[in-house]
C-alpha cells in the first residue's frame, strides 16, 4: 500500500470504509513499511580503481534504487577497502546519475589507505527535496595515487575479503 496525502476531514461528512482504508489503514501501513533499498554486494572479487576523478564503483550492481512518495531519503554505505600502497581515498554518493551529495566538498568521506584492510563508512545522510518517483543512489570513489580496492568477495576464503559492500537507502518522511 502506498502513501496518500491525508484527507482533511469536513464536519458532518460521512466517513466510509474506503476513506478509512485509504487514509488510516493504508497510510499507517506505508509508514510501517517505507520504500527501502539495500544492496549487500558480493562481487566475487575486489573492485579496483586508479581513477583520480570520482567514478561509480559499479553503476549496475552497487546502486540502490527505490520509488519514493516525495519524502526525504536516508542513505548510507559501508565497505572494506585497501590500497596497493599508501594513498588517500574519497567517497561520495550520486543521486539519479547526476547530483553528488558531497557537492561543494571533495566528497562525503575520505580515508588514508594502505595495504591493511580498513572498514570505511559514509554515515547516514538525509537527502531532502526529492520528488515522488524512482530515485537511484550510487557509490562514487577516487584515489589520489595508488590503486584502491573495495573487498566484497565470498569466493576468497579470507575473512577480511568475505564481507559485503553495503549501500542502503530508505524514505524517512
Amino acid at each position: 500500500m502506498g502513501w496518500t496525502t491525508p484527507r482533511t476531514w469536513v464536519i458532518g461528512e460521512l466517513v466510509t470504509k474506503t476513506m478509512l482504508d485509504t487514509h488510516l489503514r493504508d497510510n499507517l501501513l506505508a509508514l510501517k513499511d517505507p520504500p527501502s533499498a539495500q544492496v549487500m554486494r558480493d562481487n566475487a572479487g575486489a573492485y579496483t580503481t586508479t581513477s583520480t576523478t570520482l567514478v561509480p564503483v559499479d553503476d549496475v550492481n552497487l546502486k540502490a534504487t527505490l520509488t519514493t512518495y516525495g519524502g526525504d531519503v536516508l542513505v548510507w554505505f559501508a565497505g572494506t577497502f585497501s590500497a596497493a600502497s599508501g594513498t588517500n581515498m574519497v567517497l561520495d554518493i550520486r543521486v539519479d546519475g547526476t547530483d553528488r551529495l558531497g557537492d561543494g566538498f571533495d566528497g562525503l568521506a575520505a580515508q588514508s589507505l594502505g595495504t591493511s584492510k580498513t572498514i570505511v563508512a559514509i554515515p547516514p545522510v538525509i537527502v531532502p527535496g526529492l520528488d515522488a518517483g524512482e530515485h537511484s543512489f550510487e557509490l562514487l570513489w577516487r584515489t589520489t595515487g595508488a590503486t584502491i580496492r573495495l573487498h566484497a568477495d565470498t569466493t576468497s576464503g579470507t575473512a577480511l575479503d568475505n564481507v559485503p559492500a553495503i549501500l542502503a537507502a530508505r524514505e524517512v518522511s
Binding site: 573492485y47 580503481t49 581513477s51 583520480t52 576523478t53 590503486t147 573495495l150
Partner: peptide, 22 residues
C-alpha cells in the same frame, strides 16, 4: 596495477584511470 601502468603508458591525454570488477 599492471593494467593501469600499461594504459598510463599509452600517453593518452584524455585518460583518467581504470576501474575493474565484475
Amino acid at each position: 596495477e599492471r593494467l593501469a601502468e600499461e594504459l598510463a603508458g599509452l600517453g593518452i591525454a584524455a585518460y583518467r584511470g581504470v576501474s575493474t570488477g565484475g
